[in-house]
């Protein structure tokens, strides 16, 4: 295992917090049902859990807070709170699973842990075995999810800006290199890419080329033509209707949730973002 360069400093702000259900030396084993209920309850509250059994060791834990729950038969070891690892031991012999979780919640206290379930972890993941660094995803996404790394590679930088349940960028990727692990169907969910998927991608026309080199420039041109035509026709209702039809068709073909359209930036912001994305993509590609 080796560490990779991080896209940003998020890891530095993550608080390590783990719960060990301890059933080894110096403690009695829990009943299977109690163990099951306890582990399930801890997971439901968003805690990482390690079940420690005789002969097994705790996975590496070098910094943060470790809460050790068990039916201790020997004097509990001294708690440590001043080193890189703060260890707290709590006897759960007389507690229900829910009560044990409350104990853990109390020890967690004010530590800045993510509230479980506050955000559905929906975001693109790049398969770098397939990615050709073409930057189409960077140009396509309007929500600043993608960025270019210092070594000019495309990367997912702002996962939380991704629109939940929208897999549109994966559909414009010509290499099937963008995954959404929580998507329903393959290969976008990470399933093995079959011959049919590859064939479909071969047939997929480069969206940039299709639109004359720049998707947003093409949209601007189209918008300008429309404005001209609509000005002549003086029929704003008809214009709106046509645009809505286009959006509905686009949404269906790319499986974009309606909420995404509702949260699109203004036209001016889109123009600015498109120009910025195009500049970043051009710069990255030029340096390759």
């Amino acid at each position: 295992m080796s560490a990779l360069p991080m896209a940003d400093a998020k890891a530095a702000t993550v608080t390590r917090f783990r719960v060990a259900v301890y059933e080894s030396t110096g403690a009695e084993p829990l009943d299977a049902g109690v163990r099951g209920d306890l582990v399930a309850a801890l997971l439901a509250k968003g805690y990482a859990v390690t079940v420690v059994r005789p002969g097994a060791t705790l996975a590496r834990f070098t910094a943060g807070t470790l809460v050790v729950l068990g039916r201790f038969t020997e004097a509990k070891p001294l708690e440590a709170a001043d080193g890189p690892v703060a260890i707290h031991f709590r006897d759960v012999a007389t507690l229900t699973a829910a009560q044990a979780v409350e104990v853990v919640d109390g020890l967690r206290g004010g530590e800045a842990l993510t509230k479980p379930g506050a955000w559905k972890p929906w975001f693109p993941v790049i398969d770098y075995d397939r990615c050709t660094n073409c930057m189409q995803c960077l140009s396509f996404c309007l929500f600043d999810v993608y960025a270019v790394s210092a070594d000019k590679k495309i990367q997912v930088q702002n996962q939380t800006k991704c629109k939940t349940d929208c897999p549109a960028c994966s559909r414009v990727c010509p290499e099937v290199a963008i995954l959404f692990p929580k998507y329903r169907h393959g290969p976008i969910n990470g399933d093995v890419i079959g011959a049919d998927d590859v064939r479909r991608e071969v047939m997929k026309v480069d969206i940039s080329a299709l639109l004359g080199g720049d998707i947003y420039q093409a949209l601007r041109d189209r918008s300008a033509k429309s404005k001209s035509r609509f000005a002549k026709e003086r029929d704003e209702d008809r214009a709106l209707e046509e645009r809505q039809k286009c959006l509905v068709a686009l949404g269906k073909s790319l499986e974009i949730p309606p909420e995404v359209f509702a949260s699109l930036p203004s036209i001016d912001e889109i123009r600015t973002k498109a120009d910025q994305a195009a500049a970043r993509a051009t710069a990255a590609l030029a340096d390759r």
């Binding site: 998020k10 993550v14 582990v39 390690t50 420690v52 996975a59 972890p121 975001f123 692990p181």
Partner: peptide, 21 residues
Amino acid sequence: TDAGVAFDAVPDLCELSARRD
């Protein structure tokens, strides 16, 4: 849990990945 084996469990790998835990 019934088997009584040692194991690690996490709530959601995607969430841990997103925050580079």
